[in-house]
Structure formats: C-alpha cells, structure tokens
C-alpha cells in the first residue's frame, strides 16, 4: 500500500510529503509511547500516534520512519510539520481513533506490525 492509499483509507489530510505519495509501505505501528517505538520497531513502517510533540518526529527520524499519521483529530503545529518536511517525511492527520485507524489500514491490506521478534 502506498502513502496515497493510506491518506484515502484514513480519510486523512496530507500535511507534508507529497513527494512520498507513491512510497510503498508494508507495515504499521500504532504507539503513543516513543520508548516502545525505539525498542521494538523495525524499518519501513508507518507510525500512527496520538503524541503531538517534536519527539514523535525525532523518534521517527531516528528509526527511519518516513510516514507519520496523527490520529484522533490531532493536528501538529507548523514547526513540527516543518521539522518533518526538513527530514523528508510525510505527515498525515486523521480524525479516526488509534484503534479505528489501525483497523482500517489492516483491513485495507497492511498486515505486518513492523516490530522485531517479541518474546
């Protein structure tokens, strides 16, 4: 599924990252806890989060995450969007809750959680 499909599946708004609309995404991770994103996520996921602060952008950058979705109708401030843009990321805002946003992406074809093995 590409970023364009993610925007439409979530009935979302793309805030930056038009150049990534054709980027293929195979896994998704929903987390408000950036500690867990750093501890569990592998490459190539779309990150869904309700955490709107610069650390969500910085954690994503650290983990090579190129696409972030802010759920629950949260819209990041302009400086956060600018930081994401400078890092070459796409930022999407959706009114869906975390559960429904994850569910919609799963139903639309993203089936991997994109984490390392969890024992």
């Amino acid at each position: 599924m590409n970023v364009r499909d993610i925007v439409s599946t979530l009935e979302g708004t793309l805030l930056t990252g038009e150049e990534l609309l054709d980027l293929d995404i195979k896994a998704a991770c929903g987390a408000d806890l950036m500690s867990d994103v750093m501890a569990f996520v592998n490459d190539g996921v779309v990150l869904l989060t309700g955490l709107v602060n610069p650390q969500s952008i910085r954690t994503a950058d650290l983990m090579d995450i190129r696409v972030i979705v802010f759920v629950r109708g949260k819209v990041p401030p302009k400086d956060m969007v600018a930081e994401a843009q400078a890092n070459g990321m796409a930022v999407i805002a959706t009114r869906y809750s975390m559960f429904l946003a994850c569910g919609r992406l799963y139903a639309a074809g993203i089936r991997s959680g994109g984490t390392r093995d969890i024992r």
Binding site: L33, M34, S35, D36, M38, N53, Q55
Partner: peptide
Amino acid sequence: ELGFGAGMGLAN
C-alpha cells in the same frame, strides 16, 4: 506524558 520513561531505555 511526552512518550518516554517506559523503562525500556537501558535494556534497549
């Protein structure tokens, strides 16, 4: 509240 302090840091 900022998304950290989950006790994963040193182990990670």
